[in-house]
Amino acid sequence: MSVIVNRYKCGYCGACVGVCPVGALELVETWIEVDNTCTSCGVCAKICPVGALGVVK
């Protein structure tokens, strides 16, 4: 279970990091990292301003 980040779309704003209920995301300067605690809840993908995130079930 995870999310896929479309790096070519992502504007590295950190909004998704702020909403992840389990803290699975991290903004490292200009890219998003996802760790293995992701539950595929989809909240991050819902709120991304540019639609750069896709949930993998």
Binding site: C13, G14, A15, V17, G18, V19, C20, P21, G23, E26, L27, V43, K46, I47
Partner: peptide, 18 residues
Amino acid sequence: GVESKVGRWGGIDTSLKP
């Protein structure tokens, strides 16, 4: 900032709902 982790690490749940 909005992506804050420091609070969470310190035991304060700052995660935002949509």
